[in-house]
């Protein structure tokens, strides 16, 4: 089982490097997983290649990361898209370094509808701005909440007083 997974990784890496060679900064194969590290400008191109040509039909999750306390990192923030191809049982991740002062990332909502809430969560927790997202508002935290709670500089015990119920008018017409 493990071998066939590595073979799938090998052949995908080959195809991706032939097609999008310069777009992929690095491939990470630790723990037997396959991770493409992609620069921000190319993320939509890479994702749409994986979705449309390689049939990664399931967007499992989008994880934001604040790398500021890691010993080494490319940029302060990172986004990690976890993709799964149900037809051939293949899971890959796409990692995108995002600089602290340019948090805009192109949206993936046109590729997977699951990206809608996943991106809203990454937006409120880390402050990423997904350009082209239909309704980029806070989802889990309150609309009056200030700051981004999963950033490393947000104190773990800091609460906020939020009282006004959100109107939801914008989501209604989304």
């Amino acid at each position: 089982m493990a071998n066939s997974e590595q073979q799938k990784h090998d052949s995908l890496v080959e195809r991706v490097s032939a097609r999008l060679g310069a777009r992929v900064l690095e491939t990470d194969r630790s723990y037997g997983d396959l991770v493409f590290v992609v620069e921000k400008a190319a993320v939509h191109e890479v994702l749409s290649y994986l979705k449309n040509d390689e049939k990664f039909d399931l967007l499992l999750d989008i994880a934001g990361v604040d790398c500021v306390k890691l010993p080494e990192y490319r940029e302060r923030f990172e986004l990690e898209y976890i993709l799964y191809a149900t037809g051939k049982d293949h899971r890959v991740r796409v990692r995108v370094p995002v600089p602290e002062f340019a948090l805009d990332v192109p949206t993936a909502t046109d590729l997977w509808r699951a990206a809608n809430w996943a991106e809203r969560e990454a937006h409120e927790m880390f402050g990423f701005v997904f350009t082209g997202h239909p309704c980029l508002k806070r989802l889990i935290t309150h609309q009056q909440f200030e700051g981004h709670p999963l950033r490393k500089d947000y104190p773990v015990m800091q609460g906020q007083w939020c009282a006004t119920t959100s109107s939801l008018e914008e989501e209604l017409e989304e």
Binding site: L139, I140, T141, H142, L168, E171, E173
Partner: peptide, 11 residues
Amino acid sequence: KKAAVDIGYLH
């Protein structure tokens, strides 16, 4: 006609 879902009350 239209619906909106608001979550996060158990965050």
